[in-house]
Design a protein around this nucleic acid. Sequence first.
DNA 1: CTGAAAGCGCTAACAG
DNA 2: CTGTTAGCGCTTTCAG
Lengths: 333, 333
Amino acid sequence: MKVNIYDVAKAANVSIATVSKVINNTGRIGDKTRKKVNDVIKELDYKPNLMASALMGKKTCTIGFILPDLANPFFSELARYVEDMASSFNYNVVICSTDYITEKEEMYVSLLLQKNVDGFILASGFESFEAIEKIQAMNIPIVLVARNAPGKQLNLVSINDYDAGFRATSYLIERGHQQIAIIARNIWSNRERYRGYADAMRKNGLVPMDEYYYAKESTIQDGFKSLQQIMKVSSIKPTAFFACNDLMATGAIKACKKLNLNVPEDISIIGFDNSIFAQIVEPALTTVEQPQREIATEAVQLLMNAINGDNAHQTITLKTKIIERETVKNLIL
Amino acid sequence: MKVNIYDVAKAANVSIATVSKVINNTGRIGDKTRKKVNDVIKELDYKPNLMASALMGKKTCTIGFILPDLANPFFSELARYVEDMASSFNYNVVICSTDYITEKEEMYVSLLLQKNVDGFILASGFESFEAIEKIQAMNIPIVLVARNAPGKQLNLVSINDYDAGFRATSYLIERGHQQIAIIARNIWSNRERYRGYADAMRKNGLVPMDEYYYAKESTIQDGFKSLQQIMKVSSIKPTAFFACNDLMATGAIKACKKLNLNVPEDISIIGFDNSIFAQIVEPALTTVEQPQREIATEAVQLLMNAINGDNAHQTITLKTKIIERETVKNLIL
DNA sequence: CTGAAAGCGCTAACAG
DNA sequence: CTGTTAGCGCTTTCAG
């Protein structure tokens, strides 16, 4: 039923070695032989079994992409671009959602390692190094996305979260806001953005909200709860919120509606990611853009280089940009 | 570096056959031997190479999930559930976006076939059977999602699109709307919804918009353009729109804003999918819910059954439900 | 230029 | 109960 290399060899009156050589364009093969073999291959519609060649040390042309949650548009868009780019190299990507659970990441990594994937893109944002070390122990290339790994020699592609947080906050301050709250989650990228936020506040003689993270997850729900929570506990009410992703910003906007606060008249909000949500919500969200396509492109490119033997470790930092829409009010007039 | 079955055998003073048996729980193995081997496995952190066992005819524990566009929230949510469910069977899923291009589907299918995936879930919604036939020729299980394949013996899971279209339209009619337009795309599911729409109209003595599809793609953009287009060309302006997915509905709402039409005061809109967008847009979208989680769950379950030798072909039709929110006005008071 | 043969890591008869 | 052995389908020296 399934035709293999022997069938081709037989039909072409050559040895399997010859067939293998014409398939892989290795060794020297006479023109007539090559043509003959190719004809037979076409005729029998022969497709080499990639598992078998993988067993012989060839690539599996598959990469693992590990992320927290595919339902988060930031990640699904990222995944889309990763997949696109990978496919341009004839690679497939198996996507794994960890659901923010470390054990799942390790489980997926183990499984994919057993399946001999050629490389990993890790966007799960975990603090633990278990998975990374497991992969490195097998000498498999990794690139980390939106995360750092101090003290590790790795490929990284990310934005400068500190800087982005600083600029988002400054943007608000420049527009006259003084009471600025932050909705963040306790993960590395958000902590960096918090640092940027706090420094921007202090630099302008303002006092940052203390290092208290209200959001458990980066969801609409948690953004919704966080804003209400902050409004409730603050003695001096914030006039602006910096939400560390668009989902939470969306939730924050919803919360404002519930509290009968108008955005941006009463409360200004700036988000993060510039995912599709930013254009959908009402009012349209002013937000910090992450160049997802570039992130994905660079990540895959780096991974491919590594897979093809490039042992250098690169860190690529991409630019962010504030996309002005309708959720920030200028208090200075 | 990488430990294999021989290393384990040697360290445990047994043959590789014995190791294989304890791993796979086949044959009879003495308790002490089993323990010994298991200890060594743990100690050496041995993980069987799944490619090798796949070569021997075992499963790869990988399925291919082919969809049009991972950036469409309906599909990313679906993918999320598929992945979740698959992972509960210890399966990985490689996700492929066809971008609505038939050739890409075939290309992906070929590639994954060469990689010996155990099964496919096809949600790409194509009309062509090439890919399906290719897969069937290899005797690999498939389940089709959100699509039909008349005359084919296949596993199917979908909703009743005709019925859903009929009910969505009736919902509008019951609320007094008479000029109802539809925004659809020329794919099977949308045509079915159109049929339902048209029948509901006629049944109530109304005249359906003619079978003219304005949307090239199921995107926000195309929904935006379609509504404007329809408003421009209609002699009697519609009071309600039935958009065949939430993305297009979102675009339609945006278009209304641009045309200075209020939703739902001037124009009512009903969407389809009940993706996350429906809750985000303003006003919140009344829409027909597709039970994505169930679709995914059933699809994976069916596929697993098939992979495990169940040769029956099942068709599962899931229920839809109209989720009432704020975009439909009741004209009858 | 082409083929024979070894072997990748594993499973599955079949002996013992 | 355990080991030997023959492959799965392919790549890759190494002879010829």
